[in-house]
């Protein structure tokens, strides 16, 4: 038997629980020839006996009666106060955080952090400008006062039509955008929208437009010329980007050139 094997079974040997007689004899033989293991066995026996004596000596020690009296008083006080956590079972899915288990420093730190976050959120809300939130596809119809002279003069039929309808598109602004750029504000300006779109005059006035869709297209210059729009006819083969407002009936009502 080696020392490590002896070490492995020394507990059983000390407790006299080594049932295998042959193994026990081998262990005892090893302890008789190995000084270290012999000393280890003697130490273990002393410690086991001493710990057993200590356990026996203190085995009948009990808490003083005054503790029981204090607890009975506490229990009666809880019953009188009808504390909900004692008389009623709390749902298992509710997690309670007993503050008395935390250090006061931790509680103060958490409170300070929460205050800072709340203050920051409040400041942020006050700082935010008013944001228009709209559906990107929604358009509004506003009466056309007088188109811009540069456009109105070049579009047939628009120069004297003060009551003609023009379609102004409200630009969508994302609600998640914290600070809208100036360009968005400019696009949201109704005055700018009125000069953007040029009404297509071949549409009958009786067909009113209640809603429509903005569609971006590329059209040939010759097509625009045929529609009577002011384009440079020297480059007839090139394409021009434009936004069309198409009504629910599929008829284009206005056009805006994309720069």
């Amino acid at each position: 038997m080696t020392c490590s094997e002896f070490e492995y079974m020394i507990d059983l040997l000390v407790a006299d629980e080594l049932t295998d007689e042959i193994t026990r004899q081998r262990a005892m033989k090893h302890s008789s020839i190995c000084a270290d293991c012999s000393m280890r066995l003697a130490d273990e026996r002393i410690i086991s006996a001493s710990l057993a004596d200590l356990a026996e000596e203190t085995g009948h020690t009990e808490a003083p009666a005054r503790i029981k009296m204090a607890l009975q008083k506490e229990f009666a006080g809880m019953l009188a106060n009808n504390q909900p956590d004692m008389t009623a079972q709390s749902p298992k899915n509710i997690v309670t955080f007993p503050l008395h288990r935390f250090q006061p420093r931790t509680v103060l730190t958490v409170a300070a952090a929460a205050s800072l976050v709340a203050l920051f959120a409040l400041t942020w809300q006050l700082w935010l400008p008013a944001i228009t939130i709209g559906n990107p596809e929604t358009i509004a119809i506003v009466p056309l006062p007088i188109p811009s002279p540069s456009i109105a003069s070049s579009v047939p039929g628009t120069g004297n039509s003060e009551t003609e309808t023009v379609i102004a598109k409200t630009e969508p602004v994302s609600s998640s955008r914290r600070r809208p750029p100036r360009s968005v504000e400019a696009k949201s300006d109704p005055e700018m929208d009125r000069v953007d779109f040029i009404p297509l005059t071949y549409v009958s006035d009786t067909v009113s437009l209640h809603s429509g869709t903005v569609v971006r297209v590329e059209v040939q210059r010759t097509t625009l010329l045929a529609m009577g729009l002011p384009v440079n006819d020297s480059r007839n083969d090139s394409l021009i980007k434009a936004d069309l407002i198409v009504g629910d009936d599929g008829v284009a009502r206005a056009i805006r050139f994309v720069q």
Partner: peptide, 30 residues
């Protein structure tokens, strides 16, 4: 009580701990 006493070695501490343990148990028995 004995566990607290054997761990701390002080009867005063063991009494305090025993009382605290049962108070906590009666409050959070659920």
């Amino acid at each position: 009580y004995r566990y607290a006493l054997r761990m701390c070695g002080s009867t005063a501490l063991a009494e305090d701990i025993t009382q605290d343990v049962f108070i906590e148990f009666m409050r959070d028995a659920h």
